[in-house]
Simulated scan of single mutants.
Amino acid sequence: MKSPRKTFFSSLPTLALALPLTLFATNEASAHVKWFCAYDVSGQPRGLENVLCLNFEWLVGLSLVCLMFGCLAEGTPLGTALMNSLDRVLSRIRTDTELLVRATVGFFFVSLWGLGGIILTPELKTNLEWISWLQLGLAGCLIWRRTMPITGLGIVFLFGYAVSQYGVFHLADYPVFLGVAAYLILRGLDLTPYGIRALDIVRWTAAVTLMWASVEKWAYPHWTDPLIAANPAMTMGASPELFMQAAGVIEFTLAFALVWTPLVRRTSALILAGVFVSAIFEFGKIDAIGHSGIIVVLLGIAADDVRVKVRVRDTVLAPAWYAASLAGFLLLYYLGHAAIYGGLAELPVI
């Protein structure tokens, strides 16, 4: 019988390849699983003692190496050259970010009206016909800049209504909608409260959305089993468990990078946008409609040319902030689930 130590070290080559390989195979994993597979939000998530295994820790370590490489490149001639290249290539997107957001969100709401029976995302079903017509009206308000705030307020209303129907824990998957609503309201009214840009607000909510979704991959890896069974090649030889661990770690790291320094977040936004776009070819129009909003937001983040002076502590403290974010989201997810669905007396021991 092999010892655990031997078993682990024999898997090191697979772990070393897991992150870069999973990045290319993660289009299936990045599809929102609730749109395509059976799920049970109230079901017991996988125990933290099983999530925080040795493989998981090594995957996090490899991700930190990649994050630190980006941090160290910031402010160097290489980093400056990359930033200048991004500025040139994405200049048109930067100039027309607001127009692209309005057009994409308009397409999103018109598509929901056409599908019917949906509140904001494909798995949030409703029998109320007026919801579809409201969403069509919100699309119409995006034609004029002065009526953009109405669409933003409408999104907030629909989000609140969805919370009343499906619960706050389910809608914790989608804070990016509130970010888009804030963007439309602030841009329509030409406001920058406390000097905070509308694009920064939507960037933070996108990061929170994706970090929460990555924890869900670790808590409920079995939700994705039908996708893996239908396309076993997506794991590239890794076990389904290792693949889902790596997919979650990649998503969490890229999401965390969205709130870090300019080069790191712009590169992360481009990678994430590419992943979401590639998933559309696999999953079709439902995925295209559902992810259209976050894709255009990510492109806007990638095109953002605002630069700040990068301090040494931004690099030195990156691992600590990453670890704090990882621990915070894991605890928030598990404590939130236990508080809402019961089980506070049976919380797993870390």
Score class of each variant (00 low, 15 high):
206 A>M: 11
273 A>S: 12
183 Y>P: 13
3 S>H: 12
242 L>N: 11
161 Y>D: 06
196 I>D: 02
204 W>H: 14
37 C>V: 12
214 S>L: 11
91 S>K: 14
340 I>F: 04
341 Y>S: 10
319 P>K: 10
234 M>F: 05
165 Q>E: 09
219 A>Y: 05
251 E>F: 12
202 V>P: 10
178 L>H: 06
347 L>N: 03
157 F>G: 00
98 E>C: 05
133 W>I: 10
145 R>P: 05
163 V>K: 03
54 L>F: 10
125 K>S: 13
329 F>A: 06
74 E>V: 11
169 F>P: 02
143 I>K: 05
138 L>V: 01
65 V>K: 09
328 G>M: 07
267 T>M: 15
272 L>R: 09
91 S>M: 14
208 V>G: 08
177 F>L: 14
338 A>E: 06
190 D>C: 10
123 E>S: 10
19 L>Y: 01
86 L>G: 09
249 V>R: 00
257 A>T: 07
12 L>T: 08
238 A>S: 15
50 N>S: 12
119 I>G: 04
195 G>P: 01
276 F>L: 13
111 S>G: 08
99 L>K: 13
249 V>E: 01
191 L>C: 04
335 L>S: 08
23 L>T: 07
302 A>S: 10
132 S>C: 03
309 K>G: 00
114 G>D: 06
146 R>N: 01
294 I>D: 01
196 I>A: 04
59 L>C: 03
288 A>I: 02
70 G>S: 15
153 L>E: 05
342 G>M: 06
263 L>Y: 15
151 T>Y: 08
327 A>T: 08
84 N>Q: 14
63 S>N: 13
87 D>M: 11
334 Y>N: 03
97 T>S: 11
40 D>W: 09
161 Y>W: 10
13 P>G: 09
41 V>N: 04
78 L>N: 13
237 G>I: 00
76 T>D: 07
251 E>P: 00
258 L>H: 11
329 F>Y: 14
251 E>D: 10
325 S>N: 13
71 C>N: 15
94 R>V: 05
219 A>R: 05
201 I>E: 03
154 G>R: 03
83 M>R: 14
266 R>V: 06
347 L>A: 06
